[in-house]
């Protein structure tokens, strides 16, 4: 009896489909933000949101299929995301020093 209670507390009874739907919604919100925000910092934050949606999907698959490699992969995604944010924000600070704005419409000088 004790054993079953313990298992019932630990096993999530939520089907994995819900995690698929949740991460799809979060990813779409991130795409939406990248598409219509003009501030470059907000766009970086929306990229983080999309990375987190994918991480959630990977962790759910890893946990539900009993395979550890998804979680190791999520760890490396977090490492790369941290490095990306550091370099991206340094770039933004440097750009802001030059043109005093983070509006991506002002930054369209590199557009072909």
């Amino acid at each position: 009896m004790q054993e079953t209670i313990q298992v019932a507390q630990n096993l999530p009874s939520t089907p994995q489909t819900w995690y698929l739907i949740l991460s799809t919604i979060l990813f779409s919100i991130g795409v939406m933000g990248v598409l219509f925000r003009r501030n470059a910092i907000i766009i970086l934050m929306c990229v983080e949101l999309m990375l987190n949606a994918v991480n959630l999907l990977l962790v759910s698959y890893s946990s539900y299929s009993g395979n550890l490699e998804g979680q190791v992969f999520v760890f490396f995604v977090m490492v790369v995301a941290a490095a990306e944010v550091a370099v991206g924000l340094a770039l933004l600070v440097s750009i802001y020093r030059n043109i005093a704005s983070t509006d991506i419409d002002v930054l369209s000088r590199m557009k072909w």
């Binding site: 096993l11 539900y64 009993g66 550890l68 760890f75």
Partner: peptide
């Protein structure tokens, strides 16, 4: 896609195994 109903291994995500 294989969609699973419930997790199989409970000690999967601990510090030790990862």
């Amino acid at each position: 896609l294989p969609v699973y109903v419930s997790p199989t291994d409970l000690g999967l995500g601990t510090v030790q195994t990862v």
